[in-house]
Design a protein around this nucleic acid. Structure first.
Lengths: 353, 353
DNA sequence: ACCCGGAACTAATGCGCATTAGCAGTGGGG
DNA sequence: CCCCACTGCTAATGCGCATTAGTTCCGGGT
């Protein structure tokens, strides 16, 4: 039974047939005119105008479902998140991304569908929840832990999908990502350019591509030896990165410390605390860098050397990639570059005692 | 011409007809079984099982477009903004709202369409840009300066629309809003409870309902006389609200100052500056309150007495209102209440000299 | 006078599904 | 022995649109 609300909503929603009646033509003609007449059928200019006028007068808007069913497209791009679409915890990083998505989509004449997919816990695992995205012409997928099966099915069926974040496991899934490798490389090079010869990276214990990419860039930026123990991986930075630990590294000749950025910023936080606790300060006693942007609550602290993630650009790139897929074009460059940030926490190493 | 993507997407996807063939039944039966058979047609249990098995074997998933076409609704709610959908300037106030919208929509089984309507300048004024919202079953409208004509048309056609923000001009347009009147009333009462007898409101020169409502609440909260000049309206708080002005008020016996919250926070900013400039401090020399939340960059300052706008709750209320309209129910309460915030800027008035 | 070709449309069809009307079979009551 | 109610299913239809295969009208050529 059709819901009462639905029928209300539909009443007054004009169809092509009504436009046709008002314009004194057939539904076919209306479809032709409004659809751009790609089949090149000759239509009188007056007719065209009459149809257009009638459509405007009635406020006609095509039904996306019908359009889709008739095997066309509906100018809708989807955004599907495997966490809440609007996560509350990472608002500061998520919002700019959406800004980029919206602007690029608008510029290309697409509207956005936000699939409230997995936000409501219970429905999350519902098989077929993913399939709803087919309403849109193509879809962006966000989140680290994607249901591989569902996504694979979509991709295999040729559905245009773009994952936000590097993703090589699922062959055929297009993705866009941040070039953490190059950005991290650049930070290390900057430090070495300042004269640092031994640099340590503190990273959390996470296998996300965003983490491993940073480490890769870090390592490839290291010139000298000692790269073997240049990376410290810890599940609990707060208790592992202590003033004592810091002093020991300094004693070994390490002069610069680099922290990975994560949602929590734990590594950076621990590093700052250790420096404070040891009674030292950057950039005089040692240099610090952050592979990303500092958490919002640390905005008052001195600006860390490092790089900024161009989140809006990432969103725009994702949309560009998706529309390229839709157009059947070959894919763009999937990586967006970060902006190097000199900051105030890195300088030349202190003169040897 | 059918897009390549669309046809590719379709190839290989099983339909009900194929499931039916495999199960040895009709398409109707498949639809009945998979659709839950809400019409109560008697079906043999074996048949049901065969259909289910066949569907599983083929990996059948219903086509949402077809489903929605047949059901005459598409489970889509729109969000249309007369500024960019994701404004960059007021992110801190906008994001929480969207969080509420999303959660409530998800809970009710709706997806969201963000109309990139007026964000891309050029398209903004396009007549009929508004009509695109008809794509969704109903729509939220945000922004102060709405194109009344377009909206009226939608409303007259019976299109379910909800404006976010009080809006009485356009009859028939449903709205949800923040109860600034009650919240402001409460703030004034709090101040009077502390002993303040003369209180002044500093507001910007704006006729927005959000402003007039605050003033209304403020005035109705005032107990004593002198309410006539208790409200100062200024187009340029920074130059009107000076230390000198402040001293003059104090000399008149005013002991508490209340600022309206706006996007810029100019009134509050000016008030703080005047207090500083006069070498005074709250709550010792005078009491301050803010009818809203402080701007983000003033987060480090002492927490103002006042109230917090429950933005997420507002978003949720908007969706509830909209779904109520869709269901043909009578409208909910349109006002959401604010949370009183004692803050640290208000205390008893100083003892008379 | 007749045919032909282009201009300007329209009728008919199908997309995949939900829904409604209806049809065969079966057993029981009158 | 006929009618009826009931069980268990299917044919037919329509949602709103895009597309394909026509159809009608008209002026020129021969």
């Amino acid at each position: 039974m059709t819901g009462k609300g639905a029928s209300r909503a539909r009443r007054g929603r004009p169809r092509q047939a009504e436009v046709a009646r008002l314009a004194g033509v057939s539904q076919t003609t209306v479809s032709l005119v409004l659809g751009g007449n790609k089949q090149g059928i000759t239509l009188h200019e007056d007719t065209r105008r009459r149809v257009l006028a009638a459509a405007r007068e009635l406020g006609y808007v095509p039904d996306p479902a019908a359009r889709r069913l008739a095997a066309a497209r509906n100018n809708l791009l989807g955004v599907f998140s495997f966490t809440a679409t609007f996560p509350t915890a990472v608002e500061h990083s998520y919002y700019p991304f959406l800004v980029g998505v919206e602007q690029e989509a608008a510029a290309r004449g697409y509207d956005l569908v936000l699939f409230t997919g997995s936000s409501s816990g219970s429905q999350a695992a519902a098989p077929g929840a993913l399939e709803r995205v087919r309403l849109a012409d193509g879809c962006l997928f966000l989140g680290r832990h994607l249901p591989a099966d569902g996504l694979r099915r979509l991709v295999e069926h040729g559905y245009p999908a773009v994952h936000v974040g590097r993703h090589e496991e699922l062959a055929g899934l297009a993705w866009v990502g941040v070039d953490y490798v190059a950005a991290s490389f650049e930070v290390v090079r900057h430090l070495e350019g300042l004269g640092h010869r031994r640099v340590v990276l503190v990273r959390e214990d996470d296998e996300a591509p965003a983490s491993t990419d940073r480490e890769r860039g870090f390592r490839s930026g290291l010139a000298g030896p000692g790269a073997g123990d240049a990376v410290v991986r810890t599940a609990d930075p707060a208790s592992d990165i202590t003033p004592g630990w810091l002093r020991a590294r300094l004693a070994e000749g390490v002069t610069a410390f680099v922290a990975e950025e994560t949602d929590t910023g734990a590594a950076w936080r621990a590093l700052l605390a250790a420096v404070d606790g040891a009674g030292l300060s950057a950039p005089d006693d040692l240099s610090l860098a952050l592979l990303g942007s500092p958490p919002a609550d640390l905005a008052a602290r001195p600006e860390p050397a490092g790089f900024d993630i161009p989140r809006a650009a990432l969103g725009a790139a994702a949309i560009r990639m998706l529309t390229a897929l839709l157009a059947g074009e070959t894919a763009d460059e999937p990586l967006v570059a970060c902006a190097f940030r000199p900051g105030t926490t890195a300088g030349p190493p202190p003169a040897a005692p």
